[in-house]
Design a protein around this nucleic acid. Structure first.
Lengths: 219, 219
DNA sequence: CCGCTGGCTGAACACGTATTTAGAATACTG
DNA sequence: CAGTATTCTAAATACGTGTTCAGCCAGCGG
């Protein structure tokens, strides 16, 4: 059971409050006073424990990223990376963690940037493995594909509110996670374009690239 | 040619400066004084023209969204929605516009939320059309698929910095746009999963959904 | 010339902010 | 129990913020 009650240490309650406030109101938009009040604590205690507001943010970043990293590592070492249960489980980590991650990535946290890069590397590692085994068609630009994939998945987290509004569902509820998993699968397995159109677009895009290159070398 | 010079009216220069600052520093993190300085203008002029900082933000929202809406409508009425040139052209709108849109969506602007919803509706309209014509396999959850697609594409905008860092390219340069277009096409036309795996995951996911439903009705 | 309108400014104001300081309450150790 | 470190707080401080206000200055009709 997650420690929602007030039986947390003061520092933990402060961190918890900050993790909820920052994504909602932004860093500058969140006041130390508000965090302290949410935590049932005096503003002075915040700086006593964390040194300053900036350092509090850094502590939140580190905490969130650490927990996410560990979940990710568990999934990798257990070898159940594409098990839907693993995926769903991962996204059903304490909702504040997910929400915070989306915000941290969208608002330029250095620590979150590190996590992003790791994810891209991991995705490339897996893709290269799949290509070597001949299980997947080689990409013409693997790095771009993997980076974009991670960016889209993480970006969807930053669009959480919009998705929930559009679907009328709490995204991190079991139903929400299932609908998202299903939709992700459909999208990434060719559900978006009619079969013929994809190939046509690919060709059109290649000639467009060719043209751009010519124009570029002209000017 | 875009008016980058100082031959803009004061109000326009202020709006331009705000559009550059807000995505970088956040709304609360941006000071009226900084905007004024960027615009080569006194802080008092900002409120003289826009009334208040909040209203300035609303004006930026309206301006950006209006311009993006018009580009989108042009693409729709000209019927060249899947022409790569149209797509590239759309993304090569003045970079500040794109960057601002990503930020506005990620930071909960009401106006941007309206645009998001429109995009989802438009995507659904197109998908339904394609399904009726038998050009596309019907989805089990069309709304979720379209909403997620838009969320991922817009979310990628909010991850712009991370993508550029990962690829070492200015995303809104011709090269960047082309690489992203190509990667998007690959991802959304089945490039991510090996053919067999997609079907396996779909089945696994369906049984997982079934199990969840049972557990849910148990408790 | 006057009067006057509108873009524009410098200096001030009121207020909310993060942070400091001195010290109270509490728990822990010998 | 005394001594001590730790957790925590109320009040005060220094400062940055958005905003106001009184008025300057260019342009222009009469």
């Amino acid at each position: 059971m997650s420690p929602t009650a007030a039986d947390l240490t003061g520092a933990a309650r402060i961190r918890e409050a900050a993790m909820a406030r920052f994504p909602r109101d932004g860093f500058e938009g969140t006041t130390v006073r508000a965090i302290a009040e949410d935590a049932g604590v005096s503003p002075a205690l915040v700086v006593h424990h964390f040194g300053s507001k900036k350092e509090l943010r850094a502590a939140c970043d580190a905490y969130v990223i650490d927990r996410i990293r560990s979940v990710k590592e568990d999934a990798i070492t257990s070898g159940k990376l594409d098990d839907p249960a693993t995926i769903s489980g991962g996204f059903q980590m304490a909702p504040p963690l997910i929400r915070y991650l989306g915000w941290a990535l969208a608002s330029g946290s250095a620590a979150a940037a590190g996590l992003f890069d790791e994810m891209v590397d991991e995705s490339m590692r897996l893709s290269e493995l799949a290509e070597e085994q001949g299980a997947m068609e080689p990409s013409t630009d693997l790095r771009a594909r993997c980076a974009l994939q991670i960016a889209m998945q993480m970006g969807a987290l930053a669009m959480q509110d919009h998705l929930e509004r559009a679907l009328g569902v709490d995204l991190l509820s079991p139903e929400g996670v299932m609908r998202m998993s299903r939709a992700t699968l459909e999208l990434f397995s060719g559900g978006m374009f009619p079969p013929g159109q994809a190939e046509a677009m690919r060709k059109a895009l290649d000639t467009a690239i060719e043209n751009t290159r010519k124009e570029g070398s002209d000017g």
